[in-house]
Amino acid sequence: MVAQVTVAARIGLIACLLSVLAAPAWADTVRVKDLGRFLGWRENALVGYGIVTGLAGSGDSPASAVTRDAVKNVLSRMGANISPDEVHSRNVAVVMVTAVLPPSAHMGDRIDATVSSVGDARSLVGGTLLMTPLMGPDQQTYALAQGTLVVGGYRFDAQQNRQQKNYPTSGVLAGGATIETPASSSLVNRDGELTFVLQDADATTAERIKDGINTSFGRRVARVTDAATVTIDARNVGSDTYAFVSQIENVSVTPDARAVIVVNERAGTVVAGGGVQISSVVVSQGDIKVSVSQDNDAGQPYTSEYGYGRGLYVASKKIETTQGQDAVVRLPNTTVADLVQALTQAHVDTRGIISILQSIKAAGALHADIVVQ
């Protein structure tokens, strides 16, 4: 009895969610800023190669030639002349350091860095990263990283026993990298134009963005290049480029949304986007029968100068779901939300609902994309 209540409650929650999500998505407006980015405004990856010291015997083993050479090179720069064969410490580890350079960065700004082991170190807990240059794809140094690692885990070995939590061979330097070379993004190209790139290519949304920008400025400054690109004329902006960009970013538009149903078969959940419609179809699965039909009701005929014309017809759709002999539900329209509610009343579990939706899609009666996670 408890299991039945739990399943029914879960299906009822899904039906309620679908009823809310079935409202047309196009009713909401969003800022242009939330629909994409300007070409040229991007982050850049940084990477470096360094050494972590201060480990309590959990670093790279003496068999690691890379670690011995790295320690030898560091000590040589400090004035100590030793050979790699003289390095036998397990308190050091060779690591790779990665960070992300923001689109606009000034000298002295601090950014986060991630440190991960390259050799056979067991743990980086308690370690300190020595000064490590972080380079971009052009091999130029943009930041220097140094500091104490924060590792969200541990590993302890004693007498062939091991205790480990998470992955202690990687850690984070919160604000541990300092920008040494300033970086800035150029938004305006040589022709004096801005290019806005949509996150999801859609011709209708691109046209609405163009219309919204032109309306905001009171003149034709934007044009659609393709389904993912809107080009904006910035030749008359002068030095107020970022004020111009800010005005564009805050233009409100109504993006076009395609109908999507997201199915998570492992968790047994179904989430539908707005405006998901089902055409006339009949699906039978075991003792479950789903019927979607359409009736045309005659309306008042219109009058023309040549006499009476053809009457109007009003389409009335309904869903019938039957399981066994007595479970019959009739609904006035044909959306995914209504179908799920009908199946819920027929005591169909979530996996059965997923299977029925996939069958209706295969029959060409479900006008939405099904994304299976």
Rank of each mutant, 00 (worst) to 15 (best):
G147M: 00
G152R: 07
R155V: 12
D157T: 13
D157C: 03
R162T: 15
K165Q: 14
N166M: 08
N166S: 15
Y167G: 07
Y167S: 14
T169D: 12
S170P: 05
S170C: 13
G171K: 01
G171C: 07
L173D: 08
A177M: 04
I179C: 07
I179W: 00
T181A: 12
T181E: 05
P182I: 00
S184P: 02
S184W: 05
S184Q: 11
S185D: 10
R190S: 13
D191W: 05
D191V: 03
G192P: 01
E193I: 00
L194R: 00
F196T: 03
F196A: 04
L198H: 06
A201K: 13
A201N: 09
A203S: 10
A203N: 06
T204H: 04
I213P: 06
T215L: 12
S216H: 14
G218L: 05
V221Q: 06
A222R: 02
R223S: 15
R223E: 15
V224H: 11
T225L: 13
T225C: 06
A227I: 07
T229F: 06
T229K: 13
T229P: 09
V230D: 06
T231M: 10
A234H: 03
R235L: 05
N236V: 05
N236Q: 14
V237K: 06
V237A: 13
G238L: 10
T241P: 06
T241A: 09
Y242H: 12
A243R: 14
F244Y: 15
F244T: 01
S246T: 15
